[in-house]
Simulated assay, not measured.
Amino acid sequence: MHTLLRLRTHEVPPALAGIDAPRTVVDELVWREVGGDTTTRRVGSWRLDAVPRTGFALLWGERAGHGMLLPAAGLRAVRAAALTVSAARVFLHSRVVTVSVLGSGLAAHAVLAELAVHVPGTSHVAIHATDGWGVPDDLADDLELAGVGLACPVSAQDAAFGANLVVLTDPCGGEWLPPRGALIVNATGQPPPEHVVSLADQVFTDDRTGPGRAGLGQVLAGTHPGRCAPDDIVLVDLPGVNAGGVWLAYRLYESAQRKGLGVPTRAPRRRLP
């Protein structure tokens, strides 16, 4: 028998608040770029695996003999938020950042929280949720304390109007036009909208797949210059949000332990790696 820590969905945001998630994914991407390590599922004796039909991912230290179960959707949301912040830091050059988030739920929550903390100059956020999701009171209070204005427009176009950072956390129906000079981050884990791809002057990705696409890791490592012109529309596509990331999962595990989050769960040895 082994004891696991099971992190619940509502505990993901406080666990995230205890780590520097953007730095963790930057370290990962740069290491993949300069070291040639492409895995996001295993580092040393630690590994990350999906648990079929449960909606959980398992972080397990083979030598340590302990680990954590965490919601796969929560890990995906944290990775999307961290990668979004990393992209904003390298592609946005304005001192004032106005953000449009097209999406809802935990993914939107994580993105908003990380931008407010880790992207200096974030002054205003417009969020458009197609499913009627409302910004939780605690997050709205945090944004207010950070001096970030908040609006919830009824259309995606109104939300995107005037934004220099547009973040897609859910597939959004209907067309909307990205402003010139905007950074568009597709954190849905699905292909970006075709009209956005057609309008983009430059396209980057976190896994460097596809013709005509450079890697976010290349920009972070200094082997690609990044944005070519201030008024370019830059699209950063993040298919890697579904990869999890063992480094990021381990940091969440450490934070959960420090903060007393999670529920101890006993699991039979045969279910573990």
Rank of each mutant, 00 (worst) to 15 (best):
V167H: 00
A80Y: 01
V125I: 10
A214Y: 15
G105W: 08
V26N: 06
R213G: 02
S104L: 12
A126S: 08
E33W: 15
L59K: 13
L145I: 04
I127G: 03
A159L: 05
D137K: 15
V97K: 08
R23C: 03
A187H: 01
G67P: 00
T98K: 14
Y250Q: 10
R266K: 10
A72L: 14
R8K: 15
S155V: 01
P136K: 01
F56A: 11
I127R: 14
N242E: 08
V166D: 05
A156S: 08
G149F: 04
P136A: 04
D237N: 13
T3N: 11
R32G: 07
A156C: 12
D20K: 15
H224N: 13
T265I: 14
G162H: 13
A107P: 00
P191E: 02
T169R: 10
A267L: 15
Q257E: 10
P211N: 06
A146S: 09
A187G: 01
P22F: 07
C172M: 14
E254C: 15
L220N: 03
R180V: 04
P71Y: 12
L83V: 11
H124G: 08
G74R: 06
V185K: 08
W60T: 02
R23S: 10
S94I: 06
L7Q: 04
N242H: 14
A256V: 00
T9S: 09
W46D: 00
G215T: 04
V219H: 12
R180W: 08
L252Y: 03
Y250K: 15
A107R: 02
R47G: 09
E254N: 13
M68R: 05
G260Q: 12
A146D: 05
H66K: 12
G181E: 03
V167E: 05
L106P: 01
G226L: 12
G262Y: 07
P178L: 12
R8N: 07
V34D: 08
Q157Y: 06
P52Y: 04
A110H: 00
L106M: 11
V117K: 09
A108E: 04
L69Q: 02
M68L: 09
V85D: 02
A21I: 01
G181C: 13
V154Y: 05
L4W: 08
P13V: 06
L145K: 11
L168S: 06
I127E: 00
R227C: 09
L238G: 00
Q218P: 00
D131E: 10
E144A: 14
C172P: 03
V203C: 07
P52Q: 01
V263I: 12
W133I: 04
S94Q: 14
R95N: 06
T130V: 07
R270M: 09
L29A: 02
V111N: 02
T54N: 05
